[in-house]
Design a protein around this nucleic acid. Structure first.
Lengths: 137, 137
DNA sequence: TCAATAGTTGACGTTTACGTAAACTGCCGT
DNA sequence: ACGGCAGTTTACGTAAACGTCAACTATTGA
């Protein structure tokens, strides 16, 4: 890390520790053009921007997106509002992503509702079967 | 499918068409013990239960879960409330799943919020740059 | 000075989730 | 009787996302 703290920078190990991934993984993302750290000599140096990108990448992963999809998402985050055509294109891509995310959320809500139902049945069964059993903890 | 409609049943092709997957995929899920269709002779025969399970499997896939995780989820859906210990265990597993799903939903909401922000910037930029350009559609 | 620690580039290995092809069976309309 | 279609098993192939060496370099504290 930076010593006196000017602009923050991180080593690959720093980020690996912070986000709980291996350095191999981080290098792989670079190979896939998801990250592009600076270099001090031969060593990779990550700034806040790369750190944010890594955070976004991992969020995408948690949502089950592929590297290719994550690349698209990152593009959305980064597109510099240049020309109007670009902007409209960007808006379209955003709409697309939003649709995917919302249908995914619907799936989650559905599953959560299912879980709630099953749990309710459980609680009821527990209450009926052994109402006298105290918690062990 | 059943002709006169007694209890519904489906061929592997029926389900493949309905859910937009290949028969290979469905057989693979059987190999992984996610499905266990009956057999008429050598041919697989799927009932409503298997169809529901396939639906759940694909929902799990859309949420980015692995086969192993989906197996666990299916277990939750199916556990027959037998003994109290089983029930408590089930409740615990439900809680676990719920936690995962809720954090995943948080990720989605965060991303949706990001998208909304970016889109707002886009609309603003569009309004500033070319307010006179009518939509082409 | 030296060993440990963290970094680097290959390059091959591995797991997951199927795709794909081969070879066979059973039924169905003509 | 026969071509075609849907189904079956077996088995090898594959893309994605890393894991896991190996071999080397640079820095650093004792």
């Amino acid at each position: 890390m930076a010593d006196g703290d000017g602009i923050q920078e991180y080593s690959i190990g720093d980020l690996a520790r912070e986000f709980g991934v291996t350095t191999r993984t981080i290098r792989y993302y670079e190979d896939e053009d998801l990250l592009a750290p600076a270099r001090r000599g031969q060593t990779r140096v990550y700034g806040p921007r790369e750190r944010v990108r890594l955070r976004l990448i991992l969020r995408g992963k948690r949502l089950g997106f592929s590297i290719a999809e994550i690349r698209e998402i990152l593009d959305i985050y980064e597109t510099k509002p240049g020309e109007a055509g670009q902007l409209r294109h960007l808006v379209a891509k955003i709409a697309e992503r939003r649709a995917m995310l919302e249908s995914q959320r619907a799936d989650i809500d559905q599953t959560l509702a299912d879980m709630a139902k099953i749990e309710a049945r459980c609680e009821q069964a527990l209450a009926a079967t052994g109402p006298g059993e105290r918690r062990v903890s």
